[in-house]
Amino acid sequence: MNRLLKSREVLLALAILALLAVIATRFPAFIAPGNLTNVFNDTAPLIILALGQMIVILTKCIDLSVAATLALCGMVAAMLDGAGVPLALILPAALVLGAALGAVNGLLVWKVDIPPIVVTLGTMTIYRGIIFLISDGRWINAHQMTAGFKDLPRTEVLGLHVMSWIALAVIGGAYVLLNRTALGRSFFAVGGNPHAAVYTGIDVGRMQAVAFVLSGALAGLTGYLWVARYAVAYVDVAGGFELDVVAACVIGGVAIAGGAGSVAGAVLGALFLGVIKNALPVVGISPFWQLAISGSAIIIAVAFNARQGRARGRIILKSAEHRA
């Protein structure tokens, strides 16, 4: 299952293609290459965060603080820019701050043994609150940002925005990490059977902390990209985005109980939501529908996951074995 796409991913890819085909019958412009790259670019933050979230979920945890981490790192990046710090330092700073915020989650889960959902529900509000404290609740608008700061994500290289290239790099990195490194495989082991992981010399808590750090670092990176691309930073940036991120993972077939999931699944789950979000205004449906649609998608996906994962119980009768 590691290198071969399981039917799950193929199904999801087909669903996205079908969706595109349906939209194309009425609005052919939607599937023009230029527009599709726009859709991808627009979905890039969701893809990046979904990959981080997937690693966290693999280890049997959940990170509800990603959007708040994103917003806080974005605000700090914008403030650093305002203070005249060069972009070459802002980018690593956002990354490191994100990793540090993730480490706070991770340490609380690892060292203090608090359930991840409680930790990240708490840090989600704390991080948002900190944005208010450091910004005094004020917005940082486009005219307060330097051109270089705003332009980087939008710079076009070989027909794609830098934002998209970063997402592609994160996808590639996640693939190598999760499929080709001992660390990556340990995430699966920790979530799949924490008890056994201990016996193979893997420290479950430490792996969970590492997952949170990775998720936080990716959220920090995305924080800069987000604030620079939309050229605004304020307390409620990406409010509620953590739900989209979890939704992308669930739709992508990442098992919420941990131990199962794939990079392709998470990316396709994010793209599925991205296509819907971008298609709504095109087909003339109010964007207010989006929340309800992604909510329904989560429920349908989790119901689907459960059907697929339902244990093919031990079959005792020989005759039944043949039928099965």
């Binding site: 080709r180 490194t181 001992a182 340990s186 699966f188 082991a189 799949g192 056994a196 193979t200 010399g201």
Partner: peptide
């Protein structure tokens, strides 16, 4: 053992053979 991993991985988890780049 780990249900989601392959037989080979279950045998070698933690000490898998690596390529020169340090990858599995």
């Amino acid at each position: 053992l780990f249900d989601e991993l392959t037989v080979a991985e279950n045998i070698f988890l933690g000490h898998a053979p690596r390529t020169r780049l340090g990858l599995i």
